[in-house]
Amino acid sequence: MTQQREKWDVLKILNWTKGYLAEKGVENPRLEAEWMLCEALSLDRVGLYLNFDKPLSDSELASYRNMVARRGKREPLQYILGSQEFMGLDFQVTPAVLIPRHDTEVLVSEAVKRSAGAGSILDIGTGSGCVAIALAKELPDVEVCSVDVSADALAVAMSNAEKNGVTVQFSQGSLFEPFAGRRFDMIVSNPPYIPASDIATLQQEVRGFEPLSALDGGADGLDFYRSIAAEASNHLTAGGWLLLEVGAGQAPEVLELLRAGGFSRECFSEKDPAGIDRVVGGRVP
């Protein structure tokens, strides 16, 4: 976009942005251009289509240019717009938290399936709070607790709980640290699971902007699973469930860790929509 005072209407600037973002390697340049322009103009996409000949004001153009520049540097669109949908709910996201993925909805669905009789659930590594908040929404009579080591992430999660009208008990600490002597009917977690050596191969949007602490699972990606599987039975009631999201190809090893940790009953794995084993779980005797 030049600095000359030329007229930029909606259609003209969308076409320009599509080409610019495509050059920068953005996968869906036209669609993302539309989403950012919707934000700048406070319109939905239907409104955008009905206003193709609308000229942008100086302030609208400045706001849009800023967003496009950030996206051109491959900053995730969700951080630019400040939100992401998950399980039909709207979540605020900032660079303090991992952007919720729709793959993680499988973890919530499997937890809800196994929630009969549960009075309490613990979500480990809550990040944006998407899993805990979705569970609190689906299971309003269940006490949902969550923990994260990051104070900044917890601030985002608390804001999201308030925004979505649910009560979640948030604690700061590592894994089970704040819950000495406490037992739950179910524990769920989407822990960091990317092998450290693979981080450099991730999309620029991920490796350059999302929090490393929410991605790095150690040398083989399994560090957090080892810690959780070793301790979880001490924090579950009899017959309690442990459910974990896993990375592609990790399900067999994580299931072995669960069995070694005493989860000998009803172990399972469940696929995501892409056919990848995405959630594993087991039950204490």
Score class of each variant (00 low, 15 high):
Met1Ser: 14
Gln3Glu: 11
Glu6Val: 15
Asp9Phe: 08
Val10Gln: 03
Lys12Phe: 07
Leu14Phe: 05
Leu14Thr: 06
Trp16Met: 12
Lys18His: 14
Lys24Ser: 06
Val26Gly: 03
Glu27Trp: 12
Pro29Asn: 09
Leu31Pro: 00
Leu31Lys: 10
Met36Ala: 05
Leu37Glu: 02
Cys38Phe: 06
Asp44Thr: 08
Arg45Cys: 04
Leu48Arg: 07
Lys54Phe: 07
Ala62Gln: 12
Tyr64Thr: 05
Arg70Pro: 01
Arg70Gly: 03
Glu75Ile: 05
Leu77Met: 13
Gln78Phe: 05
Tyr79Phe: 11
Ser83Phe: 13
Ser83Cys: 07
Gly88Ala: 08
Arg101Trp: 08
His102Trp: 10
His102Phe: 12
Glu110Cys: 05
Ser115Phe: 09
Ile121Thr: 04
Leu122Asp: 01
Asp123Asn: 07
Gly125Val: 05
Ser128Val: 05
Ile133Leu: 10
Ala134Glu: 08
Ala136Ile: 03
Pro140Leu: 09
Asp141Cys: 07
Glu143Pro: 00
Val144Leu: 07
Val147Tyr: 00
Val147Pro: 00
Asp148Val: 03
Val149Trp: 00
Met158Tyr: 03
Asn160Asp: 13
Glu162Arg: 13
Val168Ile: 07
Ser174Tyr: 01
Glu177Cys: 00
Ala180Lys: 11
Val188Leu: 11
Val188Gln: 03
Asn190Ser: 14
Pro191Tyr: 11
Ile194Cys: 08
Ile199Gly: 06
Ala200Arg: 12
Ala200Asn: 11
Thr201Ala: 15
Leu202Ala: 14
Glu205Gln: 14
Gly208His: 10
Ser213Phe: 08
Leu215Phe: 05
Asp216Arg: 08
Gly217His: 02
Gly218Ser: 13
Gly218Ile: 10
Ala219Lys: 15
Ala230Phe: 04
Ser233Ile: 11
His235Trp: 00
Leu236Val: 07
Leu236Gly: 09
Ala238Trp: 06
Leu242Asn: 02
Glu245Cys: 08
Glu245Gly: 02
Val246Asp: 04
Gly247Arg: 12
Ala251Ile: 04
Leu255Phe: 01
Gly262Phe: 05
Glu266Thr: 07
Asp272Leu: 10
Pro273Ile: 09
Asp277Gly: 01
Arg278Trp: 05
Val280His: 01
Val280Asn: 00
Gly282Arg: 00
Arg283Val: 13
Pro285Val: 08
